[in-house]
């Protein structure tokens, strides 16, 4: 089984978000970038399935410029076998999906995994676009993934419950908790990752279909109104009469 795991490079979850003065771009100054937390589920699960199925491989794929390589090496240290970087700044979800589809087609991958969405763009789009470009099934978001031969059994989250879905490889799944416990690299992994192959390929395909015109931060809160704990019931009256939400 050949697994392709797509990772994106995102600001650390504790990042305070700010933008350039013209509000056109994210301000990267002083920001630590990490593997998108959702993608860690996809990566760890692929490695677990590889370990359980002799002869399987895990390739990690990132669409990004050279500054994403530390996190690609981190994915290799966690246990991926090799990596591909499509050398381009990700323009929008469709652009990224085109790159993934091209790599997947070229490499003949059986299982294409990614996180549910990236914590910066929050598109939750790439899974379906890749599946449609390749004409294969997509399961999103998947909470559980098991493989028996080329047949996968997945639990797909739906509002208020879950569906049990069976698909045959090749397929795409976007992953989320509680699929697995994401792994962190160990020393041996970090040492071996240095020599694992990382191939850089040029971007393909059409231009992006969407452009960000401007970013904005949410409006600031007015400040908290404190109610005395001894008189807690007063809060309920304020919620009805002042805030008018109950």
């Amino acid at each position: 089984m050949k697994f392709l795991v797509c990772i994106s490079n995102v600001p650390d979850t504790t990042t305070k978000i700010s933008f350039t003065p013209d509000n056109k771009e994210f301000n990267k100054a002083g920001v630590q970038f990490v593997i998108n937390p959702w993608d860690e589920y996809a990566l760890t699960r692929a490695i677990e399935l590889k370990e359980a199925n002799a002869g399987s491989t895990v390739t990690v794929l990132n669409v990004g410029e050279a500054d994403t390589e530390p996190n690609i090496r981190k994915a290799l240290a966690i246990g991926a076998d090799d990596a591909i970087r499509v050398n381009a700044a990700p323009q929008d979800a469709f652009f990224v999906a085109e790159q993934i589809a091209a790599v997947a087609k070229d490499g003949g991958y059986d299982v294409i995994l990614m996180g549910k969405e990236s914590i910066d763009y929050n598109g939750f789009q790439v899974h379906g676009m890749v599946g449609e470009l390749l004409g294969i099934p997509t399961v999103a978001p998947a909470m559980k993934l098991d493989m028996a031969g080329t047949t996968a059994t997945l639990e797909r989250e739906i509002e208020g419950g879950k569906e049990i879905v069976e698909v045959s490889a090749p397929f795409v799944a976007s992953c989320q908790q509680p699929m697995c416990e994401p792994r962190i690299p160990n020393m041996r992994g970090i040492m071996t990752a240095r020599t694992k192959p990382l191939k850089v390929v040029p971007a393909v395909g059409d231009a992006a279909r969407t452009q960000v015109a401007e970013f904005a931060l949410p409006p600031k809160k007015q400040g908290v109104k404190l109610i005395d704990a001894a008189n807690a019931g007063e809060l309920i009256k304020l919620l009805r009469n002042e805030a008018k939400v109950i």
């Binding site: 979800a93 469709f94 999906a97 929050n122 598109g123 939750f124 789009q125 790439v126 899974h127 379906g128 676009m129 599946g131 449609e132 470009l133 997509t138 999103a140 978001p141 797909r156 989250e157 739906i158 509002e159 279909r209 969407t210």
Partner: peptide, 24 residues
């Protein structure tokens, strides 16, 4: 809707119908 169903079909439809897509 920006639901699990909406995101699943919306993303496939954007490719099939050659449409630009915005979620959330």
């Amino acid at each position: 809707a920006n639901s699990n169903i909406g995101a699943s079909v919306g993303s496939r439809l954007s490719v099939r119908l050659k449409a630009s897509l915005a979620t959330n």
